[in-house]
Design a binder for these strands. Sequence first.
DNA 1: CATATGTCAGAGATACTGAGATAT
DNA 2: CATATCTCAGTAGCTCTGACATAT
Lengths: 147, 147
Amino acid sequence: MTPMEIARAPRRMTALPSWLLAQAAVRSGRTVAEALASAGAHRSQYAVLAALDERGPLSQAALSDGVGLDRSDMVRLLDRLAEEALVLREPDPDDRRRNRIVLTPAGRARLRELDGVLDSAQAEVTAALSDAERERLVALLRKLLGA
Amino acid sequence: MTPMEIARAPRRMTALPSWLLAQAAVRSGRTVAEALASAGAHRSQYAVLAALDERGPLSQAALSDGVGLDRSDMVRLLDRLAEEALVLREPDPDDRRRNRIVLTPAGRARLRELDGVLDSAQAEVTAALSDAERERLVALLRKLLGA
DNA sequence: CATATGTCAGAGATACTGAGATAT
DNA sequence: CATATCTCAGTAGCTCTGACATAT
């Protein structure tokens, strides 16, 4: 999904780092989104499942923060994950304002499945590069991001 | 503009090429959008002015195609550029279905100004990299895109 | 009282769809 | 008649705001 065609662009733009990054991100994002969509999932759903798997039960606020999603949108996302019984929403006994979001066994299984989907999507994204080149790209992007 | 905070994300995601590309593109895109916005412009406006400068007068369809923008959106974009007298919309005598979109002297001047804005935005985007690293990144992105 | 949380309704910008009028 | 161009209205998904009730 996110059809979002790759734009042809004026020549002067195609040399810009910002344009190359944008194009690469669009293609890569489309590849990943399509892979997840064919498994019936979305990027933010995967991120939430992964965060819960790595960090254990979290409040919605902590989840929103840890995943970079607005709190109001997290509400709807969790509605859906809870419907599918991939997470549980239980009241937090320590702070009754909070919901404790817990990954269910089904959620964990789903996450494993999506981990595999993501993994082959990465291979597809970087198919044009050798292993060494892919590593160099990753290192440069990390440095660019100040990691 | 495009506030769009950088997302923190689960650890397993931050190692993925697709995630690094997405994050780099978001930062870079924000930098560029803010630079253009402070000059009162948008990315697609710049692209249209640049396409006209490089290729001469074009129909709206050719412009849409050359810039990767939907035809229906091009209508509104050109309304604005024409209001500011940066382009002219004149009937094409050779094919009366078409509009001939012409860059005005003011449009060309605007483009020169925005070229400068873009140029310093690129420097900002790649500030964390050395010249050699920036070139390596550009080469890798080109290869990734199959250029 | 000030702040944090979850929830909801809606704004805003962007990409796209569908249909109509005009011309080829 | 089939197709291309421009235009307009409206949809869809996504992000973000503002407000509210509840709890700390």
